[in-house]
Design a protein around this nucleic acid. Structure first.
Length: 475
RNA sequence: GCUUCCUUAGCUCAGUAGGUUAGAGCGGCUGGCUGUUAACCAGUAGGUCCUUGGUUCGAAUCCAAGAGGGAGCGCCA
């Protein structure tokens, strides 16, 4: 008998077929003559039920078949006499691959808090919620590659280790092979990085964008999809020290094209999940609805998870400039903790107001003041703003940040200088503006923030298998 | 980095005007139940009350420090 997994049995299994069900026991219910064992192998949200008749298999053999144990049950696939499932396995033999001491196994057939599950991240993929999230995470990652591939983008592998400390996207993790206790010193007492592995200071990447631009200046349409590291001491439900980011970069694209791409891309991904992760999303939708019931009336969201997803697919995003957004916020009746003023960056509360209260749909804000955005963004004619765009989602905040890039050599050099970036450290980046420069644009999508939105979870630590956050790198 | 909350049985939680033997539900174990769906019914075992130090005749309860976790803010994706 060939290897067969539960998803395949439930989808293609024939009544009367001999099957071997392997997986982890979710629950066992015992009565006088029968035992019912629910087994899951993670290939699907659904369990398969095995029925053990004590006339053919003595109850003694089920002693070690407890919640969490890994078992192999051979038998015949039959139509279920019970009402909860169409088919079930009439057991002929029960083998226990791996026991799970029921006194010690932490996962019970009951609801656990997400905080508790985070502390047992090595076991939480065995829960319904996390296996559903991980399957959706996979589907979204696959859909990202499919979207770009179908549209002629090339997947560009940008470096994980970078010698550039000029990207300005945040604090970085140092990469070194120097002996931390006895580092080589210069005459002035500073550390001599010339003796380090790469002969210079190196860090983990905070963005693949600059290298992505180099790719776009040759292949026209590229994207990156890789791990990204930020050593920021950020303690929020929306930040990770290690996360995955998708960064398309396209030659000949201007800001409008960039917005069109971002909107189409997000709608495609959400639609893909709705189509391909239906069972898992239905489960999370129900879970979400139960969570909402616990909240006070005014904090509940008006739409359920699946309704929210469909809403994003079926409604175009609002596009407006930073300047117009500031006007709306200034005229808003709501009292904000932080005042709104042209020239300062918008606070979370302002973004939330625009997305969740004022427009009630995803918003793309554009043309931010030059001073609050990165040096590489293309300057507008008025000299005050740049062609930046942030895509804001309900409950998530900024899911995408992007811009048309400055392609004028002198302007770019001047902005880099103004924010204190040394020309020598990005000479290669500047050279693309010297040799065959062209208009181009791109953006960065935080993968986990996308997964957060699609799964309806509220903490980013619950949508990555093994989260890395300040003071936490277990597992 | 700042503000704030939490830590009691394997899990979810109750328990403070400081008082002697620390409680419930689920889970475990034992028994019952003819097909169950987080099964049900009865009985039973199970605790360094996060750690260390202090106040007190007496601390799960009060104080201090530490550890772990959550939420919010800042930074951003």
């Amino acid at each position: 008998m060939k290897n067969i997994f539960i998803k395949e049995i439930l989808k293609d299994g024939q009544i009367g077929q001999e099957v071997k069900v392997r997986g982890w026991v979710r629950t066992k219910r015992v009565s006088k003559a029968f035992a019912f064992i629910n087994i899951n192998d993670g290939t699907t949200i659904h369990n398969i039920q095995a029925v053990v008749d004590f006339e053919s298999i003595p109850e003694e053999q089920l002693k070690d078949v407890n919640t969490g144990a890994c078992v192999c049950i051979s038998g015949i696939l039959v139509a279920s006499e019970g009402s909860g499932q169409a088919v079930e396995v009439k057991a002929q033999a029960v083998e226990v691959y791996g026991k799970a001491d029921p006194e010690k196994y932490p996962l019970q057939p009951k609801r656990h808090s997400l905080e508790f599950l985070r502390e047992i991240a090595h076991l939480r993929p065995r829960t319904q919620t996390f296996s559903a999230i991980l399957r959706i995470r996979h589907a979204l990652a696959f859909a990202i590659h499919k979207y770009f591939n179908d549209r002629g983008f090339y997947y560009l592998h940008t470096p994980i280790i970078t010698g550039s400390d000029a990207e300005g996207a945040g604090e970085m993790f140092r990469v070194t092979t120097l002996d931390m206790n006895h580092p080589p010193k210069n005459e002035d007492g500073s550390i001599n990085y010339k003796e380090d592995f790469f002969g210079k200071e190196t860090n983990l990447t905070v963005s693949g964008q600059l290298e992505g631009e180099l790719g776009a200046m040759a292949l026209s349409k590229v994207y990156t999809f890789g791990p990204t590291f930020r050593a920021e001491n950020s303690n929020t439900s929306r930040h990770l020290a290690e996360f995955w980011m998708i960064e398309p970069e396209v030659a000949f694209f201007e800001l409008e094209d960039n917005m069109d791409l971002a909107e189409d891309f997000l709608q495609y991904l959400v639609a893909y999940a709705i189509e391909h992760c239906n069972d898992d999303l239905k489960f999370l939708d129900q879970r979400n609805a139960e969570e909402e019931k616990q909240k006070p009336q005014q904090e509940r969201s008006e739409l359920g998870l699946l309704e929210r997803l469909n809403f994003v697919v079926n409604n175009s995003f609002v596009r407006l400039t930073y300047t117009d957004a500031v006007e709306i916020l200034k005229n808003a009746k709501k009292k904000f903790q932080f005042p709104v003023d042209w020239g300062t960056d918008l606070q979370s509360e302002h973004e939330r107001y625009l997305v969740e209260k004022h427009f009630r749909k995803p918003v793309i804000l554009t043309n931010y003041p030059t001073e609050i955005k990165a040096f590489y963004m293309k300057q507008d004619e008025d000299g005050k703003t740049v062609r930046a765009m942030d895509v804001l989602f309900p409950g998530i905040g900024e899911i995408i940040g992007g811009s048309q890039r400055e392609d004028d050599y002198d302007k770019l050099k001047q902005r880099a200088h103004a924010v204190g970036i040394e020309e020598e450290s990005i000479w290669w980046y500047l050279e693309t503006r010297k040799f065959g420069a062209c208009p181009h644009a791109g953006f960065g999508l935080g993968f986990e923030r996308l997964v957060l939105f699609v799964t309806g979870m509220s903490n980013i630590r619950d949508v990555i298998p093994f989260p890395r956050t300040p003071k936490s790198a277990e597992f």
